[in-house]
Measured scan of single mutants.
Amino acid sequence: MTEYKLVVVGAGGVGKSALTIQLIQNHFVDEYDPTIEDSYRKQVVIDGETCLLDILDTAGQEEYSAMRDQYMRTGEGFLCVFAINNTKSFEDIHHYREQIKRVKDSEDVPMVLVGNKCDLPSRTVDTKQAQDLARSYGIPFIETSAKTRQGVDDAFYTLVREIRKHKEKMSKDGKKKKKKSKTKCVIM
């Protein structure tokens, strides 16, 4: 069974824990209790493949930012979460993405942009803004509501699919490099 290491990042209060708990335990946590770091595991079937999701729910508070490099190193894919009623959390996505790329030393890291709290009427981040940002990053965008469960499975499952595509691409690139290195030079 394939294991996928997913990391949920975003500013404090955007609903990272609520999304994760909704996926794992099928219930909505409405009281806000700032996370330092929590880890969850769940076995699911995605596109006919049974897999184990190892999900790291991270601290959004700035005082825990020193811990970010460590979990970013171990993560295979990242859910970059903002709240649709919090423009600052949307603007912060850029910083999370840049930090992930720096730590992973790669421009090509599996990510999904997630606009959470889409059940709320007080939207300050337009869907088109988020779609445009995701398009500019070359990553999928999904709106979710941890409260109603809308888009929750889709967000995590899409990230797994992005990781699969990335692994497939990397193995193809690896095979191309191996083929090239088999060419021999004969000096007579």
Rank of each mutant, 00 (worst) to 15 (best):
Y137M: 07
A83M: 10
E31G: 02
D132N: 04
R41G: 04
G77N: 01
V8I: 05
G60W: 00
Q70E: 05
C118L: 10
G151L: 14
A130L: 09
Q99P: 01
V44C: 13
V109N: 02
Y4K: 15
E49D: 09
K169R: 06
V114Y: 00
E76W: 10
E31D: 10
K169W: 04
E168I: 14
R73Y: 11
K101P: 01
R68V: 01
F90E: 02
V45K: 10
V8C: 06
P121W: 11
Y4G: 15
F156K: 01
P34M: 01
N86G: 11
L79P: 02
D132T: 05
E76V: 12
A83F: 01
H166E: 06
E107F: 07
Q22C: 05
D105R: 04
L113Q: 01
A66I: 05
R135P: 07
F141V: 15
Q43V: 07
D33W: 02
D47Q: 08
G13D: 13
K128F: 06
I21N: 02
V152M: 04
K5I: 01
K178D: 06
T20A: 04
K176I: 10
T50L: 12
Q43K: 09
I36W: 00
S181C: 10
E37R: 15
R164E: 11
A134P: 04
Q61I: 06
K101W: 10
A11H: 10
A66Q: 13
K5N: 10
V112E: 02
D126C: 06
V81E: 09
A134Q: 14
Q150H: 11
V152K: 15
A59Q: 00
S181D: 07
C51S: 12
D47M: 13
S122T: 10
V160Q: 09
R149M: 10
H166G: 10
F28R: 00
E62I: 03
S65H: 10
A155G: 13
I139L: 15
R41V: 09
E49M: 15
P110A: 04
E31Q: 03
K165I: 11
V45W: 05
G115F: 09
H27K: 14
D54Q: 14
S17G: 00
M67W: 15
K167M: 09
G48K: 09
F78Q: 01
E62P: 07
T74S: 09
V186D: 15
I100D: 05
L6E: 02
G10C: 04
G60S: 01
L159Q: 03
V125G: 11
F90S: 09
P121K: 12
K165N: 08
V160H: 04
T58C: 02
V114T: 04
D108M: 13
A59P: 01
T183M: 09
Y32L: 01
C51V: 13
D154G: 07
K16E: 03
G115W: 08
G77R: 03
G77C: 14
Q70L: 04
L159T: 04
E3D: 12
K165S: 08
D154T: 06
V9G: 10
E3T: 11
G77T: 14
R164L: 12
A59H: 00
K169V: 04
A18E: 01
Q22F: 03
I24V: 04
E98K: 02
V45F: 07
T127C: 07
I100S: 10
G75N: 06
S39R: 12
N116I: 03
C80F: 13
D30W: 03
R135C: 14
E37C: 15
F78D: 01
G10R: 05
V152C: 08
T35G: 00
H27T: 15
T87I: 09
P110G: 02
D47K: 14
K176G: 14
T58L: 01
D119H: 04
D173T: 08
K184L: 04
R68G: 05
M67P: 02
Y137C: 10
D57A: 00
S106Y: 10
A155D: 02
L56N: 10
D69N: 13
R164F: 07
M111N: 02
V160G: 04
K169G: 09
V14T: 12
G48S: 11
D30T: 08
T124F: 06
I142G: 03
Y71M: 03
K88S: 15
G77W: 08
K182R: 03
V14Y: 12
K165Q: 06
S145W: 05
R68D: 01
R97I: 15
K178G: 07
R123Q: 12
G75F: 05
L19Y: 03
V81N: 03
L19Q: 12
M188S: 14
N26D: 09
Q43G: 11
I187A: 14
N116M: 14
Q129D: 14
Q129I: 04
M170A: 15
A66R: 12
L52G: 13
R68E: 01
D154A: 07
G138M: 06
D30N: 06
F156Q: 03
Y157C: 09
M170T: 06
K104N: 15
E62S: 04
V44A: 11
D154E: 09
K16M: 02
A59D: 00
R123A: 11
E168D: 06
T50Y: 13
F28Q: 00
V14S: 10
G60Q: 00
G75E: 03
Y4A: 10
K88V: 12
H27L: 15
Q131L: 06
G48D: 09
D132P: 14
E63T: 03
E98M: 08
L113R: 03
L53I: 12
K172V: 11
H27Q: 15
F82M: 12
D38L: 00
I139K: 02
E162Y: 08
L6M: 06
Y157P: 10
A59R: 00
E3M: 13
V109M: 08
T74L: 07
Y137G: 13
T158C: 10
K88R: 12
I24T: 02
P34L: 00
Q22V: 04
A11N: 03
I139M: 06
D119Q: 06
V125I: 09
G151K: 11
L120G: 13
N116A: 13
K167A: 06
E98W: 01
E162C: 03
I187E: 12
R102F: 06
S65L: 05
D38S: 01
N26Q: 13
D54P: 15
H94E: 15
S136Y: 11
D57F: 00
V9C: 12
D173L: 13
I46E: 14
S122Q: 11
Y32R: 01
I84D: 15
V8Q: 02
F28H: 01
I24G: 02
K16I: 00
F82L: 10
K101C: 15
E49I: 09
Y96E: 02
E63I: 04
T50Q: 15
V125K: 08
D30E: 13
M111Q: 03
F78V: 02
D154N: 07
Y71Q: 03
D57E: 00
M188R: 11
V45M: 12
T58I: 00
V8L: 07
P110D: 02
D108C: 09
N86K: 07
R41C: 06
G60P: 00
V103H: 08
V29D: 05
N26G: 12
G10M: 08
C80P: 01
A18H: 02
K178C: 05
V45E: 13
T158L: 06
M111V: 08
A83Q: 13
V125A: 10
K178W: 13
K177Y: 07
K172T: 13
S136F: 05
Q150K: 03
S106W: 07
K178P: 08
F156D: 02
G13P: 15
I46C: 10
N116F: 01
Y32I: 00
R41F: 02
A66H: 13
M170D: 04
P121L: 07
K117Y: 15
E162N: 10
V152A: 11
Q131H: 10
D132S: 06
S136V: 10
P110N: 03
R102N: 11
T20V: 09
